[in-house]
């Protein structure tokens, strides 16, 4: 088993133009009530204050292949942020 695959979960994102970008998944979960799947990943981008930029997407598997979708609903986005806020505090 490749250690890096275990240590980091890598996701390859295929863009519309066919280019592939590899990112690292840091969290994946689904809400129990809506069963909607979300993935949080990072490209290890840091700003001047060492804050790390993370990306949140909804994973749509209805068409067979997984597809990343944005979160447009404000309420849904707030729920996701609440989850991240709770997890960032540590359980």
């Amino acid at each position: 088993m490749e250690n890096k695959d275990v240590e980091k979960k890598i996701m390859s994102i295929v863009a519309e133009d066919g280019s592939i970008e590899e990112v690292e998944v840091i969290l994946a979960f689904e809400f129990k009530d809506t069963k909607k799947e979300y993935v949080i990943y990072t490209k290890n981008e840091k700003d001047e204050n060492d804050n790390i930029t993370v990306y949140v997407s909804n994973v749509d598997r209805s068409s067979g292949d997984p597809k990343l979708m944005g979160i447009d609903d404000e309420e849904e986005w707030n729920r996701v942020k609440d989850v991240l806020r709770e997890l960032s505090k540590g359980e």
């Binding site: 390859s12 519309e16 060492d50 993370v54 949140v56 997407s57 997984p66 979708m69």
Partner: peptide
């Protein structure tokens, strides 16, 4: 998540987190 598609540029929401 070996290969996932991304249709548009707005397929993800961004956040900044502390280390």
């Amino acid at each position: 998540y070996n290969l996932v598609k991304k249709d548009s540029h707005l397929s993800s929401n961004q956040l900044r987190t502390r280390p």
